[in-house]
Each structure stands twice: as structure tokens, then as C-alpha cells.
Design a protein around this nucleic acid. Structure first.
Lengths: 211, 211
DNA sequence: GCCTGTGAATCCATTCACAGCT
DNA sequence: AGCTGTGAATGGATTCACAGGC
């Protein structure tokens, strides 16, 4: 039923957002939703929701709405989050620990299978989720052994590039980077940056425009 | 020199990104940069950079480039990050602690002036940055006393809405929310959500499209 | 009557290409 | 010669508006 049409980037960004309220609704025993209601929950235009979902092949029911189970299934299929992804993390200060314990990662199929740090005091420590902290030189052998697919970097900016190079060298093709530096990467690899200062800048801008 | 034209949202998102490399260059003693070079550093199109910067009033020098000091000054003025912003944070588990110690916040003028938690074991504890953890019922009086402008929420999802309501009730107009729930807000208030699962979903999608 | 699916219209953003200044 | 600033052209994304099925 899926059309072979290119799905716009903007749509991809939004459907990941639709997922959470849909999962909440399922838990509440709701099985059908209209575009108007989903739009309202996600603060977007209803026509936008319908257009977004129509890229998935139009399985809504006219006069009724969308089956939430189907929606979740299709969205996950499109996003490739219908399977497990193996993550390795480098840098186990507060931010690293926070991510390790982030419940939603696990729920969505993102599993940390290894943790690395360069601090001798941390190496060998047992983490709450059952992993033992490894030295960063183990990144390559362990990444390959365990089949890590995504590297998460929460180290200091000084170490971030070194760690990234190790991930790339181990054949990892995607990095989620929380360190505030620009990571140089091979052409075949992806880096997604998360920068809270930029987020705050945007919020401050919007706030300063209000009234 | 600033034109009175509306600056596109997409431009705002990008200029916050230009800031960091520019600040790095200043530190290296570089004072002038061309749109080509800045574009390369930020992985965008050079014409894009010129168009973005032209909204600020065209103070580049033809044949030469842009004065980096001026650029930083103008960008900060536009983003309203040319001043200090006072933040209050609720929820002092790992994520909260990580944010409190995030060096870049301080550097960019974002200062935490109060910290709140509901856990009796945490209340009264002294934090590394010199604050003492307060019970969440103190949010309203302290926010007003200290002039908190932005509330940061890193509590569990269960408490997030309660805390948000307290921030709103104290007259705070902007919230940065790390908790994976949708926060209901008065019309006059802003909520900016940060959701790592969504970020990972997008990365996983891009990764699955590669090759 | 209600809600989806979608062409058409509109709006916004990016990129091109070159005139204009230093 | 080199690089900015900007109209014009292109390309995407959003919204409208309504035909079509339940």
C-alpha cells in the first residue's frame, strides 16, 4: 500500500512527533483518531497531518479517522524504528548517565550495549543498566563485536573528535553528538548535533519577540 | 543600519549556529571571514549565508568579507542573547545536574539562579554552582524574587505539568522542557521541547536511507 | 454528516547569477 | 580580482477547498 513517492524531510520530522501522543492514546484504550484531533494535540494544521499521513498510502477511513495501531506501525516502518538499534556511548559524566537511564530510549528500541570513558577512576565501574565502563581504546574492538550502529558522544569537547574518529574507524556510520564542537566526518557518515545553547538562543529570541 | 524587515524563522535557526564557529575564530585571532568560508564551516550554501546576514543590514565589505566582531555583535542583538537570562531549573537528577554544569550556558549568558526538586533527600543540598536545592513549592516566591525568566524542566513526566503550572503561575513566560510529555500552556507562554528519542528517530531514518 | 485524500493555490526558503563596491 | 548584496528563478512545504467514500 506504500507509495513509492519521496517523503519530504519536513514530514519525517513531524511524524516522529506524532508517535508519542499516539502511543499515549493506545494506552488509554483509544483506537481511532481524526486528523483534527491529532493536529490539535501536536499543534499543527489538520491538513498537514492528512498530507503527512497520505504519504504512507492513505489508510485512513473517510468519515471515521485513522486506526491508531496501523498508524504507529506505519510510522515506525517509515522511520526504521520498527527494530532495535544498538548504541554505544562515550563520556559518562552526568549527561551520559542521564541518557543511559532515559526510559524512552529503551521503549523505542534504542539499546545501549557499551559504555566508554577515558577516566581511569570510571573504567571498570558497573552501571545501573548492567554495563561495565570500558576504556575508550576498546571502542573499535567492542563496537565490531557487539555490532554498535550509533555512537553517542557526551565527552568533553577536547575528546569528542578523538572518540568520533574511533567510532568511524570501527565502521559506525552515525553519531549523536552532544559535545559543543563541530565533528569532522567521512562523507559516508552522519552526525546529528544536539546543542542546548542553540535551543535556548531560539527560545530567548521567541521570548523577546513576544509583546 | 538594521532593516525593519521580518527575519525568516529559518534564518534565525541558522544564525544561532553561525555563532559558535565565529567565536572560535575570534579566539584564534581571525577578524574577517568570507561567506564562502563560513558556509563551509557550517555546511550550508554560501548564498544562504550572505542572504541570512543581509537581513542584519549588510555590513559586510565587498571584496573582503565580514568583520567577525561585528557579526557576533549583530547576531547576538538579533537573538536577544546580548544580555543575561535568568533560568530556574526543576528536577535535579543526572539530566538536571548535567545542564547546571554545562559550560556553554554560562558563557552565553544563561545563568541558573535557582534549583528545585521534590525529593526531600535533595532539598537543602548545596550544588557545585553555589545554589541550594529548594522544594518545588518555593517556585513561585523565588521566581518572582529572583526574576527568573525561563524555567527548565528535567523532572519525571509525572511532575512536569505540575512544575510547569507553577512556573506559569509565577509569571514565567518560557519553558525549556526535557520531559517527554506535552505541556499544556497558557496562550501567552512558550514551551520549547527537547526530545532525544525524536532526534534518534531522525538519525535512524537518515541512517536507514544511506546506501 | 463526517472525515479522508488530494489537486490547486499560496506561502516560504533556497539557490543562482550577476551588478556593484573596494 | 574578490566578495558582498540582492533581484529573479527555482524548488519545497503549507494551507485551502472540495470531491469522494463511509
Amino acid at each position: 500500500m506504500i507509495k513509492d513517492q519521496k517523503i519530504p524531510d519536513a514530514t519525517i520530522e513531524r511524524v516522529a512527533l506524532y508517535l508519542r501522543p499516539l502511543e499515549d492514546l493506545i494506552k488509554l484504550g483509544v483506537h481511532v483518531i481524526s486528523s483534527d484531533r491529532l493536529a490539535e494535540m501536536c499543534k499543527v494544521n489538520p491538513a498537514q497531518v492528512r498530507k503527512d499521513l497520505s504519504y504512507f498510502g492513505g489508510f485512513g477511513v473517510r468519515g471515521v479517522g485513522y486506526n491508531i495501531h496501523d498508524l504507529i506501525f506505519e510510522i515506525k516502518k517509515i522511520l526504521a524504528s520498527d527494530r532495535e538499534w544498538k548504541l554505544g556511548i562515550a563520556g559518562l559524566d552526568d549527561m551520559g548517565m542521564a541518557l543511559l537511564q532515559h526510559k524512552n530510549f529503551f521503549k523505542r528500541g534504542y539499546k545501549f550495549v557499551a559504555a566508554f570513558d577515558s577516566d581511569p577512576k570510571k573504567i571498570g565501574q558497573r552501571l545501573p543498566i548492567g554495563l561495565t565502563i570500558q576504556p575508550i581504546r576498546k571502542i573499535k574492538p567492542m563496537a565490531q563485536d557487539l555490532g554498535i550502529e550509533i555512537g553517542v558522544i557526551t565527552t568533553s569537547p577536547l575528546q569528542a573528535q578523538v572518540v568520533a574518529d574511533m567510532f568511524f574507524d570501527a565502521g559506525i556510520k552515525a553519531i549523536l553528538n552532544f559535545s559543543p564542537i563541530h565533528i569532522r566526518r567521512p562523507d559516508c557518515c552522519l552526525v546529528q548535533n544536539v546543542d542546548f545553547s542553540v535551543t535556548l538562543d531560539q527560545l530567548a529570541y521567541r521570548l523577546s519577540k513576544e509583546v
